[in-house]
Design a protein around this nucleic acid. Structure first.
Lengths: 367, 367
DNA sequence: TTGAAAGCGCTAACAG
DNA sequence: CTGTTAGCGCTTTCAA
């Protein structure tokens, strides 16, 4: 099964037609419309093509002519290495890839690192539409995508008028988690959240930064917390929130440390992702704090690793998000006005959240 | 940040030039060669473009003209869902994506399910080259790729003359694992391997099927085993080998069950992947067999889950494979003759392989 | 069934 | 610094 390397395009549809003494149309038909051709002629065309080393119609030229690239672009402004290390992102990717595969469409990963402002890659992408996964609303790559005259659907964030979107109700989901903790008796909590803006800010978050966060999802989750705890007279400005730029276990651990250092009285650590929560768990263990007896910890996403760890978390259908995004983009029908798909989430009461020590109940009845 | 949906391409470079009363070259230069233009004129061009809703040069037309798509195609003939569930495949993907990102190239996932013989997707892919990941040598998609006049590099399998390849020495790696088991005293083993051919064959494998396997990597690993055990007079035809089409934990478990049912005297289960080995572990546990006291189990790949389980396995640099494949493809230099990159592997002596009960040593000195 | 004509939208010499 | 001239390789009416 040998073949020569780096073959120079040897023949074109035109040269093949010339060789055969037929028109270009006929050759084109041999490939694209077999029924428009006598089987005998078609056989001759294909055979001559093989002999001349004609590799079939050039896909790019065809795309130019038909105005169809046969591919969907995926924009995720995140170092690819993080994306492929984040189970939630992988689940999304899987769902999207599935939808594309079903439709016979390719999936183009657009190279867009957050550092490099290489918007050119977006312009260069030969695709029939874009899926944008979880980017800040001021992302230049996103802006470039929106300028392209192709349909776009955003997953998770940002939430834009006039752009299709699939996501969940982040605020409600986090509100439910907060209610859970509140009902357990927690009033003194610390929060670990993901990147709120494009700039790196590893540390405590000011209320102002929370409000102005360009990562809409994080903003919504914090808002859900604030709202719920507000109902039990917990002043949100008193609740310490720590942000981490990198989304890793190590980040979760160091963030937890930072919170516990500032206020050892904290009874629960609310994390806006399972990865961060898993990191918080390791920090708790390192400190000899038992979870949930000494400290409750909650996550968000419902990844498999979290389930194995028994994490109390919010499960969201990541694969379905990807599939829905793909379907939405590929469904040419009813592309009249912007559509929104909001998938449902589920509070998973694991074994990492319980009533804090010294609740009223414990004081009355003993631990 | 509103925008209308499904915009019809409103303007072209030509119409923009006409509107401005300049040549097409000038407009083109405004986008591609800012230095060939007075800043003032460029500003005017860009502004008029915005006013007319011209989204910039069409990427497909540009690709046709420049003969560069700015993307590499990835062919993995495997249901995408499996690929995204296999940590080794994800690691490869990450490495490849990294290499592409470094080069500013897109990565196109070509939709090619093993079921559907949709070779058309390969023809439709607008890419400057292909990376083929671990497919059987008789895969029709592979054949279609090789017909395209673009460079190609294969990762793992198959091993083709005249095609760049990156992989490991599978036979040697498995040979080393076999030596390890042999030195521990194992002579009666069972083998669990992955798909050997495109057809589904969940069960025992005949020697003939082993020899004629189209999945080169599996064939090489089995050969490594056969060779090593041959040196200690274990007749390879007596060694039961069970094949599984699906690469899942469940497959590993059922395969292990099948082997142990046939021969309960087996002292070691050699699996050609960690996933399968992890499955075998669950089956051992289900049967109340202690690992490694009652049964040794080995894997292959060195995925994180295996490490956590303390699996005795062969670690291979999956991410590096992806990165190397990308680099090889993107390095235009020295594309004269086929190149081969063979990465090194490492035997990881975990806690799942030990001397079998009733070895000579134990008989002499007691367990 | 087949062919002729007309671009799809753009870039790249080369000349001015 | 700007314009002219030629295509890149293909599909697709419309006629024959």
């Amino acid at each position: 099964m040998a073949r020569s390397m780096h073959v120079r395009r040897p023949a074109t549809l035109a040269s093949l037609a010339a060789e055969l003494g037929v028109s270009r149309t006929t050759v084109s038909n041999a490939y694209n419309r077999p029924d428009q051709l006598s089987p005998e002629l078609r056989r001759r065309v294909l055979e001559t093509a093989r002999r001349l080393g004609y590799p079939g119609p050039d896909p790019v030229a065809r795309s130019l002519r038909t105005r169809k690239a046969g591919a969907v672009g995926l924009l995720l402004t995140e170092n690819l290495s993080y994306a492929f290390r984040d189970p939630a992102a992988i689940g999304f990717l899987e769902g999207l890839a599935l939808a594309c595969e079903d439709a016979g469409q390719g999936l183009l990963l657009v190279p867009a690192s957050p550092e490099r402002e290489d918007v050119a890659a977006v312009h260069r992408a030969g695709v029939d539409g874009f899926v944008v996964y979880s980017v800040p609303d001021d992302d230049p790559h996103l802006a470039a995508v929106l300028e392209r005259p192709v349909p776009t659907v955003v997953c998770d964030q940002p939430d834009l008028d006039n752009v299709d979107r699939v996501g969940i109700d982040d605020q409600a989901a986090m509100h439910a988690m907060a209610q859970h903790l509140i009902s357990l008796g927690h009033r003194r909590i610390g929060v670990v959240c993901m990147r709120l803006n494009r700039d790196r800010n590893d540390g405590f978050v000011t209320p102002d930064r929370q409000r102005s966060a360009h990562f809409h999802v994080q903003r919504a989750r914090l808002a859900g917390l604030a709202q719920a705890f507000g109902t039990v007279d917990v002043e949100w400005t008193d609740v310490p929130v720590v942000e981490r730029f990198d989304h890793t276990i190590a980040s979760g651990a160091s963030a937890a440390a930072q919170l516990l250092d500032r206020d050892p009285q904290i009874t629960a650590l609310v994390c806006t992702s399972d990865i961060l929560a898993l990191g918080a768990m390791t920090e708790a263990e390192r400190r000899g704090l038992r979870v949930p007896q000494d400290l409750s910890i909650t996550g968000f996403d419902g990844i498999r690793e979290a389930e194995q760890a028994g994490l109390t978390t919010v499960r969201q259908p990541v694969l379905e998000k990807g599939r829905a995004a793909g379907k939405l983009l590929l469904d040419s029908a009813e592309r009249s006005r912007p559509r929104a798909v909001t998938l449902s989430t589920e509070l998973v009461a694991g074994s990492t959240a319980a009533a804090p020590r010294g609740t009223a109940e414990e004081r009355w009845f003993g631990p």
